[in-house]
């Protein structure tokens, strides 16, 4: 058994108005990775390269031990892929689609499919074109989930879902965790979805990976520190602090490598620390992106 489900090394792909640059990505088997980025950051391009649907200009792509894009047909036997732009055939019903997928994948599980129909509240007789957007997305996920693939690659699975449907989908993804051989990569611009369920988190912005780590390390490394300065002079730069906002004597700084030494440094400079707060993934993401973009401009 392979310990690494997805491995990208130095993958680049240039388009006319966009380029994916030197992407490195590792996802161990049995884990869920949340792939976070703004619209147009390069999430879908990266996922297409992972699926072998698009060829990188350079770099190595290995998924479940297969080299992409050359072994894409074999890979796709073991991977469940769904993307935001994907559509089913409007003139046919869900039952027809289920039969079609079942005829392709021997791993299709009828009982699981039935349970999913129930939990997702979907009707097999209803034509796809009569489905709401949320039902359509859930139908696609059902087709992917019921064949129990080793690896799920889901491009924006929760985009366009109402809160109820989103909860249903996230619950199903969570259930996959019971099997330690199954791996999930899902992209999202909704950090709340990613924060709860992911083991690994990767941020992408403007075609570059800006951070990739396990979630606990992520949340542990980032802190917002609220402080009172001894005077209203501009605060001196401090190590491990990537962002400072100051007005008068009140300031707030963000560290992406928090250690107690920052608090000691504050003490030495006569800075009073009012609070050291954890940050949500959304705050971490926004600060990372802003910090990275400012760095590029310099």
């Amino acid at each position: 058994m392979n310990d690494i489900a997805i491995q990208l090394n130095d993958v680049s792909k240039a388009f006319k108005y966009f380029a994916l640059k030197n992407v490195d990505l590792t996802l161990p088997t049995g884990q869920i990775m949340g792939f976070v980025g703004a619209n147009g950051a390069g999430k879908s391009t990266t996922i297409r390269i992972i699926m072998g649907l698009m060829q990188a200009d350079q770099g190595k792509v290995n998924v479940l031990g297969r080299t992409l894009p050359y072994e894409q047909a074999n890979l796709k036997q073991e991977v469940g892929y769904s993307s935001e732009e994907m559509r089913l055939y409007g003139a046919k019903n869900l039952g027809w689609h289920m039969q079609f997928i079942k005829s392709i994948y021997p791993s299709w599980d009828d009982n699981y499919a039935k349970a999913l129909l129930n939990r997702f509240d979907l009707n097999t007789e209803q034509k796809i074109k009569q489905f709401s957007k949320g039902q359509h997305i859930k139908a696609q996920l059902l087709l992917v989930l019921a064949r129990k693939p080793k690896l799920l690659v889901l491009d924006e699975p929760t985009t366009g879902l109402d809160p109820v449907a989103r909860q249903e989908v996230m619950n199903e993804l969570a259930l996959i965790l019971q099997d330690e051989q199954r791996t999930v990569l899902f992209s999202s611009h909704n950090t709340a979805d990613v924060e709860k369920i992911s083991d690994q988190i990767t941020f992408i912005d403007r075609g570059r990976i800006i951070d990739s780590n396990d979630k606990e390390t992520f949340l542990e490394n980032w802190r917002r520190i609220n402080i009172e300065l001894p005077s209203d002079h501009e605060m001196l730069p401090m190590g491990h602090v990537i962002h400072v906002e100051q007005q008068g004597r009140i300031a707030s700084m963000v560290s992406n490598q928090f250690t107690p030494s920052i608090l000691q440094a504050c003490q030495q400079q006569n800075i009073r620390v009012n609070s050291v707060d954890n940050m949500t993934l959304e705050e971490i993401f926004l600060t990372s992106v802003m910090h990275r973009r400012q760095g590029e401009q310099k």
Partner: peptide, 17 residues
């Protein structure tokens, strides 16, 4: 045009198939 092809691309096939 209606993006059912994206669905088909996810199946175990290559361009020749």
């Amino acid at each position: 045009k209606e993006h059912q092809m994206s669905f088909i691309m996810g199946l175990p096939i290559n361009v020749t198939d």
